[in-house]
Design a binder for these strands. Structure first.
Lengths: 341, 341
DNA sequence: TACCATAACGCAAGCGCTTACGGACAGCGC
DNA sequence: GCGCTGTCCGTAAGCGCTTGCGTTATGGTA
């Protein structure tokens, strides 16, 4: 209970009749203390319920045990899974994760990163798409450069424009794979629900799709720009149904959007996949349980979160480590051959 | 770029020819500085890219802008939605959220909270079920008591045993509602997939179920203890199918588990709801998109996260504020009358 | 025995900020 | 003119920890 009082390093030192220096060294396992004393210190500290003041420690030059994670949409399963892998791995390494929600707004993102830097976090992990316009990220990069220069570590997931360690999902390949899949099923009138054009993920996935579909005279392709969210896609799907009612396949640029599309189609009484096929990206955990289950491409998101932490833990080598993450086509119920005319 | 150097308060002060005290006061909007000077300070600080060192500030007695969130399972949508509401609301108030994963292990939880306390977070939000055994939480409560005594703020979501501000979902009511729902559909052979008995949420939901089903001679009720996770339920569902093949309804104590049940039944070729009805708790976002969509009870999770932040922001009044959160039955495809014999 | 490395520990100077306290100065009433 | 109040600002004392350096004890070596 002990209202209002926290045991400090000094209290422990006094209780043992040693100096704070000794206690400090003993507790952080540094050399310069005999093992018996160290043991006694540790025991007493534990008994007294001593917990080091993180701020004092950090200020004095010790190292932080917090890493920052910046995501676009905390509610999006894509990020949830990454966060899950990261937080769990962090916990195993006695690290804490500070989660920031940037809402796909570069300004907000900048603010969040600034705050993380101010907290002297050990590392910043940036998850999600970068911006195609290098200008947008200019401030961010300057900030991150300063951060790394002072010993901070930056790990990106899918931000290929950043010169940091990175996990780079093969978005272009995934786009191509899905386009090919639809083509092989026989679809020729395809709608793509794209996100805001400023995002590299959007750009890459679209590029993959175009690389397969462009130049084919028998293919009618409509690309709709919309919000990169489930609701955005749900609304856009209405437009697809009304403007191009003969569409036989809708390709959403992520699973959240695909779910939105399924939702709209269900409400409108359009049967999937009998009348319209739907596919997404990312193979979010629930994709398999959807009604109908969703054809998508898989990136090992949880695994990527864990791997990001591994990068955090291993000190940055001379040059940036960039690992490409491969995709995998997951064929499920939501795609099928188009209806006979 | 400026490798290795961060602008400090002192740098700003020197640039302006004033004392650090003045700069400090100006930046934190305290009295004692003329408005012109304050304005000049703010401008110069911004120009120099000054960002206060959070640790120094906190150590010197300033207040933190971090709040800690402890969840049982970061991957569980239940917590994800709460976290989503919380993180978003926090962002709007210039607060950072530190997320901890306790994995339903009191020891780990304790460790995480200890770490949060060491970080002098402004508030600790504990989400998820408490433990029925008061002993288990004894250490935790001592820790939290110390924390509040030093001005910390504790907000619980669903931890009715803690004497803090709390949001208390009506789990008992929800259990009763679902049991009644199954009964009304005509189900008489019901299996319940419960979680570990040490959790109050499990206890409360079960209590609600029992309050409706107990004493009815025509009802055959089997309660299975299992892991409170999707995989745990998936495994348990196998057991249900094999041991009590005539079961017509499976009630899982949360949606994640219900999803696991659906998964198992699908694999086994058992049709839902034609042969077996399935229901869950919480109305996680994907419940509506499942195949088949899931009957469940809704708690406004995202809203609860937001509300928790509101509690964090409003200073604790004399006595704990405890708000009960009502549930709502969401009837969907996964429940229907049992098959004719 | 004298000398020096080595180990074990204490001293004290910070880390970058906040804030009590006090000084300087202006304005006011008497 | 004096004193008083109030405003604006600087001085300096910490906040609780880490760590470089100095001191002392210890043992090994020539």
């Amino acid at each position: 209970m002990e209202l209002g009082h926290v045991t400090r390093l000094d209290d422990v030192a006094r209780a043992l009749g040693v100096s704070t220096a000794t206690v400090s060294r003993a507790l952080s396992g540094k050399a310069g203390v005999s093992s018996e004393v160290a043991e006694r210190v540790r025991r007493t500290a534990a008994e007294m319920g001593y917990v080091a003041n993180v701020h004092a420690r950090t200020l004095a030059g010790g190292t932080t045990t917090v890493i920052g994670l910046v995501v676009h949409e905390i509610g999006d399963p894509y990020f949830t899974e990454i966060a899950g892998g990261l937080v769990e791995a962090a916990e195993q390494n006695d690290l804490l994760v500070q989660v920031c929600h940037a809402g796909r707004d570069p300004g907000r993102e900048l603010k969040q990163v600034r705050s993380l830097v101010a907290h002297r976090v050990r590392a910043v992990v940036l998850a999600g798409s970068g911006h195609t316009d290098p200008e947008v990220d200019a401030d961010l990069r300057a900030l991150l450069d300063g951060f790394t220069a002072r010993g901070g570590h930056v790990v990106a997931i899918g931000r290929r424009h950043l010169e940091s360690d990175a996990l780079l999902p093969d978005n272009t390949g995934a786009g191509a794979t899905l386009a090919r899949h639809l083509l092989e099923l026989g679809h020729r009138r395809i709608a793509v629900l794209g996100g805001p054009p400023g995002l590299t993920t959007v750009q890459d996935r679209l590029a993959g799709i175009h690389s397969v579909l462009d130049g084919r005279e028998d293919v009618e392709l409509h690309v709709l720009e919309t919000d990169f969210t489930r609701d955005g896609a749900a609304t856009a799907a209405v437009e697809v149904v009304e403007r191009w009612p003969r569409t036989t396949a809708v390709l959403a640029l992520n699973d959240a959007m695909a779910i939105g599309v399924l939702d709209t189609l269900r409400r409108r009484g359009v049967r999937v996949p009998e009348q319209v096929s739907v596919a997404g990206f990312d193979d979010v955990a629930v994709a398999a349980q959807l009604s109908p289950s969703l054809t998508t491409t898989r990136f090992p998101l949880t695994e990527m979160g864990r791997e990001a932490l591994q990068l955090v833990l291993t000190p940055p080598s001379g040059e940036a480590r960039r690992r490409r993450v491969d995709h995998q086509l997951i064929t499920r119920e939501s795609t099928a051959p188009p209806p006979q005319e």
